[in-house]
Design a protein around this nucleic acid. Structure first.
Lengths: 143, 143
DNA sequence: CTTGCTGCAAACAGTTTGCAGAACT
DNA sequence: AGTTCTGCAAACTGTTTGCAGCAAG
Protein backbone atom coordinates (compact mmCIF):
# COMPACT_ATOMS: atom_id res chain seq x y z
CA UNK A 1 0.00 0.00 0.00
CA UNK A 2 2.86 2.36 0.69
CA UNK A 3 4.28 1.41 -2.67
CA UNK A 4 0.95 2.16 -4.30
CA UNK A 5 0.90 5.62 -2.83
CA UNK A 6 4.42 6.29 -3.91
CA UNK A 7 3.52 5.21 -7.37
CA UNK A 8 0.42 7.36 -7.27
CA UNK A 9 2.44 10.40 -6.35
CA UNK A 10 4.97 9.59 -8.99
CA UNK A 11 2.28 9.48 -11.64
CA UNK A 12 0.94 12.78 -10.41
CA UNK A 13 4.41 14.30 -10.50
CA UNK A 14 5.06 13.12 -14.00
CA UNK A 15 1.69 14.31 -15.22
CA UNK A 16 2.29 17.69 -13.67
CA UNK A 17 5.86 17.97 -14.84
CA UNK A 18 7.15 18.07 -11.28
CA UNK A 19 10.67 17.09 -10.41
CA UNK A 20 11.70 14.28 -8.20
CA UNK A 21 13.67 15.55 -5.25
CA UNK A 22 15.28 14.19 -2.13
CA UNK A 23 13.02 16.36 0.04
CA UNK A 24 9.79 15.15 -1.51
CA UNK A 25 10.87 11.56 -1.12
CA UNK A 26 11.70 12.02 2.52
CA UNK A 27 8.49 13.87 3.26
CA UNK A 28 6.43 11.26 1.49
CA UNK A 29 8.17 8.38 3.25
CA UNK A 30 7.77 10.04 6.60
CA UNK A 31 4.15 10.91 6.02
CA UNK A 32 3.34 7.38 4.89
CA UNK A 33 5.13 5.90 7.86
CA UNK A 34 3.07 7.82 10.40
CA UNK A 35 -0.33 7.10 11.69
CA UNK A 36 -3.24 9.28 10.87
CA UNK A 37 -3.73 12.95 11.62
CA UNK A 38 -0.27 14.39 11.78
CA UNK A 39 0.18 18.14 11.95
CA UNK A 40 2.66 19.95 9.74
CA UNK A 41 4.75 20.83 12.74
CA UNK A 42 4.85 17.23 13.95
CA UNK A 43 5.86 15.99 10.54
CA UNK A 44 8.51 18.67 10.28
CA UNK A 45 9.98 17.76 13.65
CA UNK A 46 9.88 14.08 12.87
CA UNK A 47 11.90 14.67 9.73
CA UNK A 48 14.27 16.99 11.51
CA UNK A 49 14.93 14.46 14.25
CA UNK A 50 15.90 11.97 11.58
CA UNK A 51 18.69 14.46 11.00
CA UNK A 52 17.53 15.24 7.52
CA UNK A 53 17.44 18.99 7.35
CA UNK A 54 14.35 20.13 5.52
CA UNK A 55 12.77 23.55 5.76
CA UNK A 56 9.29 24.02 7.16
CA UNK A 57 8.18 25.84 4.06
CA UNK A 58 9.01 22.80 2.00
CA UNK A 59 6.95 20.60 4.27
CA UNK A 60 4.00 22.96 3.90
CA UNK A 61 4.38 23.13 0.15
CA UNK A 62 4.79 19.41 -0.22
CA UNK A 63 1.77 18.50 1.88
CA UNK A 64 -0.31 20.68 -0.41
CA UNK A 65 1.04 18.72 -3.32
CA UNK A 66 0.09 15.46 -1.65
CA UNK A 67 -3.39 16.82 -1.12
CA UNK A 68 -3.61 17.81 -4.74
CA UNK A 69 -2.33 14.41 -5.73
CA UNK A 70 -5.14 12.85 -3.73
CA UNK A 71 -3.11 10.97 -1.18
CA UNK A 72 -3.54 13.27 1.78
CA UNK A 73 -6.45 15.27 3.11
CA UNK A 74 -6.43 18.38 5.26
CA UNK A 75 -8.37 18.12 8.46
CA UNK A 76 -9.03 21.25 10.44
CA UNK A 77 -9.99 20.63 14.01
CA UNK A 78 -10.26 23.67 16.18
CA UNK A 79 -6.88 23.76 17.74
CA UNK A 80 -5.35 26.15 15.27
CA UNK A 81 -3.23 23.56 13.51
CA UNK A 82 -3.75 22.00 10.14
CA UNK A 83 -3.45 18.26 10.20
CA UNK A 84 -3.21 15.82 7.36
CA UNK A 85 -4.59 12.33 7.16
CA UNK A 86 -4.11 9.57 4.65
CA UNK A 87 -6.68 9.25 1.94
CA UNK A 88 -7.99 5.78 1.43
CA UNK A 89 -9.74 5.52 -1.90
CA UNK A 90 -13.49 5.86 -1.73
CA UNK A 91 -13.55 6.07 2.01
CA UNK A 92 -15.12 8.83 4.00
CA UNK A 93 -15.15 9.06 7.72
CA UNK A 94 -15.60 11.56 10.50
CA UNK A 95 -13.77 12.15 13.76
CA UNK A 96 -14.24 11.69 17.45
CA UNK A 97 -11.79 13.97 19.19
CA UNK A 98 -10.73 13.56 22.80
CA UNK A 99 -10.25 16.97 24.33
CA UNK A 100 -8.22 15.40 27.11
CA UNK A 101 -5.41 13.64 25.25
CA UNK A 102 -6.09 14.84 21.72
CA UNK A 103 -6.64 11.32 20.49
CA UNK A 104 -8.60 11.14 17.28
CA UNK A 105 -10.79 8.19 16.47
CA UNK A 106 -12.35 7.74 13.09
CA UNK A 107 -15.85 6.53 12.50
CA UNK A 108 -18.24 6.11 9.68
CA UNK A 109 -22.01 6.15 9.75
CA UNK A 110 -24.03 5.67 6.64
CA UNK A 111 -27.26 6.86 8.16
CA UNK A 112 -25.74 10.18 9.10
CA UNK A 113 -24.21 10.52 5.67
CA UNK A 114 -27.56 9.96 4.08
CA UNK A 115 -29.37 12.34 6.40
CA UNK A 116 -26.91 15.06 5.52
CA UNK A 117 -27.58 14.64 1.86
CA UNK A 118 -31.29 14.87 2.54
CA UNK A 119 -30.89 18.04 4.57
CA UNK A 120 -28.82 19.69 1.88
CA UNK A 121 -31.28 18.68 -0.80
CA UNK A 122 -34.19 20.01 1.21
CA UNK A 123 -32.53 23.43 1.26
CA UNK A 124 -31.74 23.32 -2.41
CA UNK A 125 -28.06 22.87 -1.71
CA UNK A 126 -25.69 21.04 -3.91
CA UNK A 127 -23.55 19.32 -1.27
CA UNK A 128 -19.85 19.34 -1.93
CA UNK A 129 -18.40 18.10 1.34
CA UNK A 130 -19.12 18.02 4.98
CA UNK A 131 -17.40 17.58 8.26
CA UNK A 132 -18.59 16.17 11.48
CA UNK A 133 -16.62 16.17 14.66
CA UNK A 134 -17.64 14.91 18.03
CA UNK A 135 -15.67 16.34 20.93
CA UNK A 136 -15.51 14.71 24.31
CA UNK A 137 -13.44 12.67 26.70
CA UNK A 138 -12.24 9.20 25.81
CA UNK A 139 -12.40 6.30 28.21
CA UNK A 140 -8.92 6.96 29.59
CA UNK A 141 -9.48 10.65 30.12
CA UNK A 142 -12.82 10.29 31.90
CA UNK A 143 -10.83 9.21 34.99
CA UNK B 1 -35.68 39.08 23.75
CA UNK B 2 -33.00 41.68 23.29
CA UNK B 3 -33.92 43.00 26.70
CA UNK B 4 -33.62 39.54 28.16
CA UNK B 5 -30.14 39.16 26.81
CA UNK B 6 -29.11 42.52 28.12
CA UNK B 7 -30.43 41.56 31.48
CA UNK B 8 -28.63 38.23 31.29
CA UNK B 9 -25.36 39.94 30.58
CA UNK B 10 -25.97 42.40 33.32
CA UNK B 11 -26.48 39.60 35.82
CA UNK B 12 -23.34 37.96 34.64
CA UNK B 13 -21.43 41.22 34.95
CA UNK B 14 -22.67 41.82 38.46
CA UNK B 15 -21.91 38.27 39.52
CA UNK B 16 -18.42 38.55 38.10
CA UNK B 17 -17.79 41.99 39.50
CA UNK B 18 -17.40 43.45 36.02
CA UNK B 19 -17.93 47.09 35.34
CA UNK B 20 -20.52 48.57 33.08
CA UNK B 21 -18.91 50.53 30.30
CA UNK B 22 -19.94 52.45 27.24
CA UNK B 23 -17.97 50.05 25.03
CA UNK B 24 -19.61 46.92 26.35
CA UNK B 25 -23.04 48.44 25.91
CA UNK B 26 -22.32 49.41 22.34
CA UNK B 27 -20.83 46.05 21.47
CA UNK B 28 -23.74 44.20 23.03
CA UNK B 29 -26.31 46.36 21.27
CA UNK B 30 -24.58 45.96 17.96
CA UNK B 31 -24.15 42.23 18.37
CA UNK B 32 -27.79 41.78 19.33
CA UNK B 33 -28.94 43.89 16.41
CA UNK B 34 -27.15 41.78 13.82
CA UNK B 35 -28.20 38.57 12.29
CA UNK B 36 -26.41 35.39 12.99
CA UNK B 37 -22.82 34.52 12.37
CA UNK B 38 -20.97 37.77 12.47
CA UNK B 39 -17.19 37.78 12.47
CA UNK B 40 -15.18 39.89 14.87
CA UNK B 41 -13.95 42.03 12.04
CA UNK B 42 -17.46 42.62 10.71
CA UNK B 43 -18.72 43.57 14.12
CA UNK B 44 -15.77 45.87 14.64
CA UNK B 45 -16.36 47.62 11.33
CA UNK B 46 -20.07 47.91 11.96
CA UNK B 47 -19.39 49.68 15.23
CA UNK B 48 -16.74 51.86 13.68
CA UNK B 49 -19.06 52.95 10.90
CA UNK B 50 -21.54 54.06 13.53
CA UNK B 51 -18.78 56.53 14.35
CA UNK B 52 -18.28 55.10 17.79
CA UNK B 53 -14.58 54.55 18.08
CA UNK B 54 -13.88 51.24 19.76
CA UNK B 55 -10.64 49.30 19.55
CA UNK B 56 -10.49 45.88 17.96
CA UNK B 57 -8.95 44.38 21.05
CA UNK B 58 -11.96 45.46 23.05
CA UNK B 59 -14.28 43.77 20.60
CA UNK B 60 -12.28 40.56 20.88
CA UNK B 61 -12.24 40.72 24.65
CA UNK B 62 -15.89 41.54 24.92
CA UNK B 63 -17.05 38.77 22.63
CA UNK B 64 -15.22 36.33 24.86
CA UNK B 65 -17.13 37.74 27.77
CA UNK B 66 -20.42 37.27 25.94
CA UNK B 67 -19.44 33.70 25.26
CA UNK B 68 -18.65 33.16 28.89
CA UNK B 69 -21.92 34.78 29.83
CA UNK B 70 -23.70 32.28 27.62
CA UNK B 71 -25.22 34.64 25.13
CA UNK B 72 -22.86 34.12 22.23
CA UNK B 73 -21.17 31.07 20.80
CA UNK B 74 -18.00 30.83 18.76
CA UNK B 75 -18.34 29.12 15.45
CA UNK B 76 -15.26 28.20 13.54
CA UNK B 77 -15.82 27.55 9.91
CA UNK B 78 -12.75 26.99 7.87
CA UNK B 79 -12.17 30.41 6.48
CA UNK B 80 -9.72 31.54 9.11
CA UNK B 81 -12.13 33.85 10.89
CA UNK B 82 -13.88 33.32 14.16
CA UNK B 83 -17.55 34.06 13.99
CA UNK B 84 -20.07 34.43 16.76
CA UNK B 85 -23.69 33.49 16.75
CA UNK B 86 -26.49 34.14 19.19
CA UNK B 87 -27.21 31.48 21.74
CA UNK B 88 -30.84 30.61 22.05
CA UNK B 89 -31.46 28.73 25.25
CA UNK B 90 -31.58 25.00 24.86
CA UNK B 91 -31.21 25.13 21.14
CA UNK B 92 -28.59 23.35 19.18
CA UNK B 93 -28.20 23.49 15.47
CA UNK B 94 -25.67 22.86 12.77
CA UNK B 95 -24.70 24.74 9.64
CA UNK B 96 -25.05 24.50 5.92
CA UNK B 97 -22.41 26.73 4.39
CA UNK B 98 -22.52 27.99 0.83
CA UNK B 99 -19.03 28.10 -0.55
CA UNK B 100 -20.21 30.45 -3.27
CA UNK B 101 -21.69 33.37 -1.36
CA UNK B 102 -20.73 32.39 2.21
CA UNK B 103 -24.34 32.23 3.26
CA UNK B 104 -24.91 30.16 6.36
CA UNK B 105 -28.15 28.32 6.93
CA UNK B 106 -28.93 26.68 10.21
CA UNK B 107 -30.60 23.34 10.56
CA UNK B 108 -31.44 20.91 13.25
CA UNK B 109 -31.86 17.18 12.99
CA UNK B 110 -32.74 15.10 15.97
CA UNK B 111 -31.89 11.83 14.36
CA UNK B 112 -28.37 12.97 13.63
CA UNK B 113 -28.00 14.29 17.15
CA UNK B 114 -29.04 10.97 18.54
CA UNK B 115 -26.81 8.97 16.23
CA UNK B 116 -23.85 11.04 17.35
CA UNK B 117 -24.52 10.26 20.95
CA UNK B 118 -24.71 6.58 20.10
CA UNK B 119 -21.43 6.69 18.23
CA UNK B 120 -19.68 8.43 21.08
CA UNK B 121 -21.11 5.98 23.61
CA UNK B 122 -20.05 3.02 21.52
CA UNK B 123 -16.46 4.25 21.71
CA UNK B 124 -16.64 4.88 25.41
CA UNK B 125 -16.61 8.62 24.84
CA UNK B 126 -18.25 11.12 27.07
CA UNK B 127 -19.54 13.56 24.46
CA UNK B 128 -19.12 17.21 25.26
CA UNK B 129 -19.99 18.91 22.03
CA UNK B 130 -19.97 18.36 18.35
CA UNK B 131 -20.05 20.25 15.16
CA UNK B 132 -21.44 19.37 11.82
CA UNK B 133 -21.04 21.47 8.75
CA UNK B 134 -22.25 20.76 5.29
CA UNK B 135 -20.46 22.67 2.55
CA UNK B 136 -21.91 23.18 -0.87
CA UNK B 137 -23.57 25.59 -3.23
CA UNK B 138 -26.89 27.17 -2.42
CA UNK B 139 -29.69 27.49 -4.95
CA UNK B 140 -28.56 30.90 -6.11
CA UNK B 141 -24.95 29.92 -6.54
CA UNK B 142 -25.61 26.77 -8.51
CA UNK B 143 -26.36 29.05 -11.49
C1' DC C 1 22.08 25.32 -19.36
C1' DT C 2 17.40 25.94 -18.26
C1' DT C 3 13.87 25.73 -15.11
C1' DG C 4 11.92 24.14 -11.03
C1' DC C 5 12.84 23.41 -6.04
C1' DT C 6 14.61 24.60 -1.55
C1' DG C 7 15.76 27.23 2.57
C1' DC C 8 15.86 31.24 4.65
C1' DA C 9 13.92 35.18 6.38
C1' DA C 10 10.51 38.43 5.86
C1' DA C 11 5.60 39.04 5.25
C1' DC C 12 0.94 37.95 6.48
C1' DA C 13 -3.67 37.42 8.92
C1' DG C 14 -6.11 36.80 12.80
C1' DT C 15 -5.76 37.12 17.54
C1' DT C 16 -3.70 38.15 22.10
C1' DT C 17 -1.17 40.85 25.42
C1' DG C 18 1.51 44.63 28.09
C1' DC C 19 1.05 48.90 29.54
C1' DA C 20 -0.09 53.79 30.38
C1' DG C 21 -3.89 56.53 30.77
C1' DA C 22 -9.07 56.86 31.09
C1' DA C 23 -13.23 55.64 33.39
C1' DC C 24 -16.17 53.17 36.62
C1' DT C 25 -17.65 52.50 41.48
C1' DA D 1 -8.87 56.50 45.67
C1' DG D 2 -8.67 52.15 44.04
C1' DT D 3 -9.18 49.08 40.50
C1' DT D 4 -10.94 47.68 36.16
C1' DC D 5 -11.27 48.71 31.31
C1' DT D 6 -9.68 50.61 27.01
C1' DG D 7 -6.78 51.67 23.02
C1' DC D 8 -2.66 51.39 21.08
C1' DA D 9 1.07 49.08 19.39
C1' DA D 10 3.88 45.30 19.83
C1' DA D 11 3.96 40.32 20.24
C1' DC D 12 2.48 35.82 18.79
C1' DT D 13 1.07 31.68 16.01
C1' DG D 14 0.44 29.20 12.04
C1' DT D 15 1.11 29.71 7.31
C1' DT D 16 2.64 31.82 2.88
C1' DT D 17 5.80 34.16 -0.18
C1' DG D 18 10.01 36.47 -2.49
C1' DC D 19 14.28 35.56 -3.76
C1' DA D 20 19.07 33.92 -4.31
C1' DG D 21 21.36 29.80 -4.76
C1' DC D 22 21.03 24.76 -5.65
C1' DA D 23 19.84 20.79 -8.25
C1' DA D 24 17.15 17.94 -11.59
C1' DG D 25 16.43 17.05 -16.34
Amino acid sequence: MIQEKKKAFNNFAVAKGLRSTRQRDIILDTFLSTNQHISVEELYLKIKSGNQGIGQATVYRTLKLFTEAGLAREILLNDGQTRYEHVIAGEHHDHLVCTGCNAIIEFEDETIEKLQKDIAARQGFHMRSHKLEIYGLCIKCRH
